[in-house]
């Protein structure tokens, strides 16, 4: 059975994987909409110029590392090294949370520099940063929750699952939010 499945899998993409790809296209459109709005807004009057929080550089490193760990996790799963697999997905999830924490530190940093993110004093340059970065964080959170689900599955002995589909899909998604952040980081620094 496994062998047959493998053979046909390589020929044709699994419908759920395919759905994920389309969903990612959809998410791209959302961020494309927001970054386009950012550019439109920037070209109008009263746009506040300020330096990005330094911590965003470090958070970029963190999320890049987490992409490596989830990649290794998927490899261990396929090699059926379950202990290694469990450690690696845990590390990935923790890195995801760390990333989110660092983004919040970035927001605090801005507020400390008297750059209001919301409220009457705020400039939409900062508000955009909050909204776009915040939305991205929610997408990372979605990934963390997905990891939590497979994590529970990996620890419960009753459920034996040999399908690598979930970890593959989470891996794809995780790389996606990673690349999305790298895009946003480049966008904030050099494009927008």
């Amino acid at each position: 059975m496994e062998a047959i499945v493998k053979a046909s899998e390589s020929k044709r993409i699994h419908p759920q994987k395919f759905t994920l790809w389309v969903a990612m296209g959809s998410i791209i459109m959302m961020f494309a909409g927001l970054t386009s709005a950012y550019i439109v807004k920037k070209n109008q009057s009263s746009w506040l110029e300020f330096d990005l929080p330094v911590v965003f550089g470090y958070s970029t490193a963190v999320i890049l590392i987490s992409s490596i760990t989830i990649h290794l996790a998927a490899k261990s799963f396929k090699a059926r090294e379950m202990a290694r697999y469990r450690t690696l997905i845990t590390v990935t999830a923790v890195l995801g949370l760390l990333f989110m924490g660092m983004q919040v530190m970035g927001f605090i940093d801005l507020e400390a520099r008297n750059i209001a993110l919301t409220g009457a004093k705020s400039n939409s340059a900062a508000s955009f940063l909050l909204v776009i970065t915040g939305l991205h964080m929610l997408h990372v959170l979605g990934g963390v929750i997905a990891i939590l689900v497979i994590f529970i599955k990996a620890y419960s002995s009753r459920i034996k699952n040999y399908s690598s589909l979930p970890i593959d899909m989470i891996g794809t998604y995780w790389h996606f939010v990673d690349i999305l952040w790298v895009y946003l980081f480049i966008f904030y620094n050099w494009i927008g």
């Binding site: 296209g25 459109m29 959302m30 494309a32 909409g33 939305l135």
Partner: peptide, 13 residues
């Protein structure tokens, strides 16, 4: 799938 997310970003703002 390609246009509703953009409306959604408009709504978030």
């Amino acid at each position: 799938v390609l246009s509703f997310p953009v409306l959604f970003s408009g709504f978030i703002l």
